[in-house]
Design a protein around this nucleic acid. Structure first.
Length: 278
DNA sequence: ACTGTTACCTGATTGC
DNA sequence: TGCAATCAGGTAACAG
């Protein structure tokens, strides 16, 4: 569920409570999420050096060269509670990290599509899930030339190509729809035709969409929250996602514009304005 | 190698 | 109201 802006928001919220702190305890309520859970005992007594994000993964780096890798899947979230809080743990809380100060970070994931792994920091980038990821969309390595090259020869729709984490890392269904609207490119357009001027529009459209979403604390679908419990509010800024049938803001009252349409692509819903997205 | 489909899992919403 | 069908922010394992 969470895409790059939500993961970035959660990572930052978690960093506030974990960075520089020593873990006093870890607990796992089951043996697996999407994959078997690692033994978390080696983390007890270690200090958190820092947190980072790669694509939709949160990396928690510990003293002594260990990195905990978290993926929130579709329904994952992090619930922080302060020292002394006595509330019952939320349903579907599968893993808990507790600091020496008594802060508690719970990994809550009803659908259990999320994952947790523990690796040597030195081997982090070669982890099977991270090794084949494409460039970070907010990094300097993501340019129109790089994108065009990644799309060259691909006959799949641009929508599917952007959801493929090897093309560019961190986009999901919402932000692909939003970025394509912003760039004026149809989700159905064949990926290899996004080159030249179109690629030059799409790269900044992706960046701006993600940057604005991060600034808003991500999008809160249903009751999704930041690690600190606050709601993100970027969902109010969606231009097409979830707006089927509404007039597109680019063509208000125009004859021939039937408003925003929704159609399935690869089993997911694509939202677009057929008049302004070609 | 590339492309599209299926499966994994629970919960909220929709439609009868 | 009740119940079944459908959908949901992801990704890996398949089949062709």
């Amino acid at each position: 569920m969470p895409e790059l802006p939500e993961v970035e928001t959660v990572m930052r919220g978690l960093a506030v409570r974990l960075e520089g702190r020593v873990l006093a305890a870890t607990a796992a309520a089951r043996a697996d999420l999407r994959w078997p859970l690692p033994d978390l005992a080696p983390l007890v007594g270690r200090r958190v050096l820092g947190l980072a994000r790669r694509a939709k993964y949160i990396l928690i780096r510990f003293e002594g060269g260990l990195t905990l890798i978290l993926h929130l899947g579709m329904s994952g979230r992090i619930v922080l509670s302060p020292p002394g809080a006595n509330a019952a743990p939320p349903a579907h809380e599968h893993v808990v990290l507790r600091t020496e100060e008594g802060w508690r970070a719970g990994f809550v994931d009803p659908r259990r599509f999320g994952s947790i792994d523990l690796v040597a920091t030195a081997a982090e980038a070669s982890h099977p899930r991270l090794a084949r990821l494409g460039p970070e969309p907010l990094g300097e390595g993501f340019t129109p030339e790089v994108l065009s090259r990644a799309l060259a020869g691909r006959r799949t729709p641009i929508k599917a190509a952007l959801l493929d984490q090897r093309t560019v890392a961190g986009l999901g269904n919402i932000y692909v729809c939003e970025a394509l609207f912003r760039a004026g490119i149809s989700p159905r357009r064949s990926a290899h035709t996004v080159a030249g001027a179109r690629a030059a529009r799409l790269v900044p459209a992706i960046r701006a969409t993600l940057e604005e979403a991060i600034a808003a604390g991500g999008s809160s679908l249903r009751d999704w929250r930041q690690a600190n419990g606050e709601l993100g509010y970027f969902q109010h800024a969606w231009k097409v996602y979830g707006r089927a049938g509404e007039p597109c803001e680019r063509c208000p009252g125009r004859p021939g514009c039937g408003g925003i349409t929704v159609f399935p692509q690869g089993g997911r819903s694509s939202f677009s304005c057929p008049r302004t997205q070609r």
